[in-house]
Amino acid sequence: MRLKEQFVKIVLYAVGLLIACIALFPLLWMAIAGFKGKTEVLATPFKFLPERWLFENYISILQDQMFIRSMLITFGGALLFAVLSLAINSSAAYVFARLEFRFKRVLWVYVILTMFVPGMAILLTSFIVVTKLGMLDTMAVLVLPGVASAGHMFFIRQFYLNIPMALEEAALIDGAGRFKIFSHIFLPMSYPVFVIVGIGSFLGYWNSFVWPTMTITNVNLFQIMQYLATFRSERATELGLLMAGSTLAAVPTVVLFLIFQKYIIRGIKISGLK
């Protein structure tokens, strides 16, 4: 019986390792392609390793002031977006999970319905709105429109529904108000779910391309994906340099995952609750 269990474990580990290798192969290829010359990246026949390792690609891209500025601006914007997303969506989730007020069910249905509207379907109308508000070419146009998310509200609300009512009732008896209950009981217990929502918000902002391209024309506010797209169109032959830039642009997201992987797994388990 033990032999059978060990065999099953080995098979599962082997399958997991194979899936991990397949998933990581494009990222590994991109990182190695950053060391290749201009003609090597798409050369035929395909060669995984470069003939000569060119560290100059990474050095050159790190010396590009526009690349560094785009990385820093995108990182700052993503951080602000994640913080605001957590603050707004967690507050709304608490209200819908714990408070009773008129038209609560109607409003919750209205919020949930927005989850089924594709972002591309409202892209033009959203652009008209921010244009009328004079928000073009500002950080506000990148951060504010997507902060409130029905999906994140729903996820956090499901977590709050599983917090025992006894804790809240005890706090109310002790004279605590709603804000104090939310800030002293619910927020400290929300760390795992906040990691999921925060990382999701951060990655959503970091990887966005269509919306920044539509609303930002000032090169000083270019987001990292805009920079890479502009680089690709203006310097199409320098693919090794482009791969180096793309690899460095992926580093923050990879580091974020490695730091919070334990909480991501715990958050996935939480998502299966009531």
Score class of each variant (00 low, 15 high):
Met1Trp: 10
Met1Glu: 14
Leu3Gly: 15
Glu5Arg: 13
Gln6Asn: 11
Gln6Leu: 13
Val8Pro: 05
Lys9Met: 06
Tyr13Cys: 04
Gly16Leu: 11
Gly16Phe: 07
Gly16Val: 04
Gly16Tyr: 09
Ile22Gln: 09
Ala23Arg: 08
Ala23Thr: 13
Phe25Ile: 03
Pro26Asp: 15
Pro26Ala: 11
Leu27Lys: 02
Met30Ser: 01
Ala31Pro: 09
Ile32Asn: 02
Ala33His: 02
Ala33Tyr: 08
Gly34Trp: 00
Lys38Trp: 01
Val41Pro: 03
Leu42Phe: 12
Ala43Pro: 00
Phe46Asp: 00
Pro50Ile: 00
Arg52Ser: 02
Trp53Ser: 00
Glu56Trp: 00
Asn57Val: 00
Leu62Asn: 03
Leu62Gly: 10
Gln63Met: 01
Asp64Met: 05
Phe67Pro: 04
Phe67Cys: 05
Ile68Gln: 02
Thr74Gln: 07
Gly76His: 05
Ala78Lys: 05
Leu80Tyr: 02
Phe81Gln: 09
Ala82Ile: 07
Ala82Tyr: 08
Val83Trp: 06
Leu84Gln: 10
Leu86Gln: 06
Asn89Trp: 06
Ser90Asp: 05
Ser90Leu: 01
Ser91Ile: 08
Ala92Glu: 00
Ala92Arg: 01
Ala93Glu: 03
Tyr94Lys: 10
Ala97Thr: 03
Leu99Ala: 02
Phe101Ala: 06
Arg102Asn: 04
Lys104Tyr: 09
Lys104Asn: 11
Arg105Gly: 08
Val106Pro: 00
Val106Lys: 05
Ile112Arg: 01
Ile112Asn: 01
Leu113Phe: 09
Val117Trp: 10
Gly119Lys: 04
Met120Lys: 08
Ala121Lys: 09
Ile122Val: 15
Ser126Gln: 15
Phe127Met: 12
Val129Cys: 12
Val130Ser: 12
Thr131Cys: 07
Leu133Phe: 15
Asp137Trp: 12
Ala140Ile: 13
Leu142Lys: 14
Leu144Ile: 15
Ala148Arg: 03
His152Val: 02
His152Gly: 15
Met153Cys: 13
Phe159Pro: 11
Pro164Ala: 14
Pro164Thr: 06
Ala170Lys: 12
Leu172Met: 15
Ile173Thr: 13
Asp174Ile: 11
Gly175Arg: 14
Gly177Val: 05
Phe179Asn: 08
Lys180Tyr: 14
His184Cys: 09
Ile185Thr: 04
Leu187His: 01
Met189Thr: 12
Ser190Arg: 11
Val195Pro: 10
Val195Gln: 14
Val195Thr: 15
Ile196Asp: 05
Val197Cys: 13
Val197Met: 14
Ser201His: 13
Tyr205Leu: 11
Trp206Glu: 06
Trp206His: 08
Ser208Met: 03
Ser208Ile: 03
Phe209Glu: 03
Pro212Phe: 01
Thr213Trp: 05
Met214Pro: 03
Ile216Val: 12
Asn218Thr: 04
Phe222Met: 11
Gln223Ala: 06
Tyr227Ile: 04
Leu228Glu: 08
Phe231Met: 15
Phe231Glu: 12
Arg232Leu: 12
Ser233Cys: 01
Ser233Gly: 13
Ser233Thr: 15
Glu234Ser: 10
Ala236Ser: 15
Thr237Tyr: 07
Glu238His: 03
Leu239Trp: 03
Gly240His: 00
Gly240Trp: 00
Leu241Thr: 04
Met243Thr: 00
Pro252Ala: 12
Pro252Asp: 12
Val255Phe: 07
Phe260Ala: 15
Phe260Thr: 08
Lys262Asp: 05
Tyr263Ala: 07
Ile264Phe: 07
Ile265Phe: 11
Arg266Phe: 05
Ile268Ser: 04
Ser271Gly: 15
Ser271Asn: 08
